[in-house]
Design a protein around this nucleic acid. Structure first.
Lengths: 134, 134
DNA sequence: GTATTGACTTCGAGTTACACGAAGCAAGTA
DNA sequence: TACTTGCTTCGTGTAACTCGAAGTCAATAC
């Protein structure tokens, strides 16, 4: 099973621009068909999945590239440990982000309810941000 | 109670650069002392809290500015409804982000455990991203 | 058989949201 | 008096896209 740029972008909920950008900077490997068009296979999809998760951790593309370079080096205890530490750090970052995102979602729930109260006429419109609660 | 740029940045876990940037683009209001230095008060802190949450929703600073402009306009049913809809949309975005961040954190947990298994010698090193599981 | 359409290509410039560093001023300390 | 600290402005740099122009190529429309 192979995919075009368009299909690949849809699979990962991103844009064709981004996919091309990743291939151009050699972050995402791809082959070409007779017409020089990019084609992606399952292996590329696995790379892309990894990229997506690491980007969601907030990891810069340059660092992801370095990590993938490590993954493709000959295996050694040192190399393995280095990769382990990278993943451990990114796991930490991911949990931090998740907690922050949860707090934001909770606050927005509160905020929306507040607006609904105002709209229902139960409380006055006090939405000027200078008056927002702590 | 008033705050300097440095204090304000620390309060919101950001950088002085960012605080100055926000004041420069008139997103965050601030006064000046006799020495022309920025000073922030509780009202500014409330603004900044709002900015922080809305940024965490993924809202662009330009849109946040527009929202704050609405907040400071004369009150009307139309205005109120417009603000309500903005907040509703951002609440949606926040929940989406939170779910995504949770999924990422879960995946990174799995990934780290996988590495720990490898380090413990229970399974071989199969970390080449081309072999990552679906 | 030509024309048009659609999907891809490259390449260079633009955008957002900061990040950084130089150079300057003002107050406090050695 | 010199130095340090902490701010100031201003202008450039950066990351990760994002967009648009211009070209290629194959398939369908007339």
């Amino acid at each position: 099973m192979t995919y075009t740029v368009k299909e690949f972008a849809q699979m990962f909920h991103t844009t064709e621009h981004t996919i091309r950008y990743y291939t151009d900077i050699n972050l995402l490997p791809c082959k070409r068909d007779e017409g020089n068009r990019r084609i992606f296979d399952e292996a590329a999809a696995n790379w892309m999945r990894g990229i997506t998760y690491l980007r969601n951790c907030g990891m810069p593309v340059k660092d992801i590239k370095k990590y993938f370079d490590l993954c493709q080096l000959e295996e050694s205890e040192e190399n393995l440990l280095a990769r382990y530490q990278i993943i451990a750090r990114q796991r930490e970052a991911a949990h931090k982000k998740a907690a922050e995102a949860k707090a934001t979602a909770d606050y927005m729930d509160f905020k929306l309810k507040h607006y609904e109260e105002i709209l229902a006429g139960h409380i006055p419109d006090d939405t000027n941000p200078a008056n927002w609660p702590d």
